[in-house]
């Protein structure tokens, strides 16, 4: 199976590798895994007060397609709104990277990671607001 040029590009030069402070209330962290292949993907977003994603980082342990999927996802996330980010579908990643059918689960993992990061951020926002209302 040959990887597409875009997959190879992201694999060789992954964008936005790294970590954000997971304890920062403006940071949402999503960690998801595919146990069949032992892949793990951590994706983090930093959101400003207007609901815009100002930074995104990832760390992925897995095959080239999983790394490319998460690298691409962080590129798409940066500068977009949380609401728009929630609309990102794995099929868009499949299309952009020309992933073959056996690698579609990598794009699903990336979509799951985005959703998990957003959920985590929302949960933190809720907790912060509750604390403010209480305080």
């Amino acid at each position: 199976m040959a990887y597409s040029d875009k997959v190879l590009d992201h694999y060789q030069n992954p964008r936005n590798v790294g970590s954000l402070d997971k304890d920062d209330p403006n940071v949402g962290t999503g960690v998801v895994g595919a146990p069949e292949c032992g892949d793990v993907m951590k994706l983090q977003i930093k959101v400003d007060d207007s609901g815009k994603i100002v930074d995104a980082k990832f760390k992925t342990y897995g095959c080239g397609s999983a790394i490319a999927s998460s690298s691409l996802a962080t590129e798409w996330l940066k500068g977009t709104s949380v609401d728009a980010a929630a609309q990102i579908k794995n099929t868009q990643i499949v299309e952009e990277l020309s992933l073959p059918p056996v690698k579609i689960h990598c794009s699903v993992l990336a979509e799951d990671a985005i959703k998990a990061a957003i959920d985590d951020w929302k949960k933190k926002q809720g907790a912060t607001k509750a604390a403010e209302a209480k305080g």
Binding site: V31, V32, G33, P35, V40, K42, A116
Partner: peptide, 11 residues
Amino acid sequence: RLDPAFLADAL
């Protein structure tokens, strides 16, 4: 679907 804390350790 594994526990995120476990997955973070695995990473």
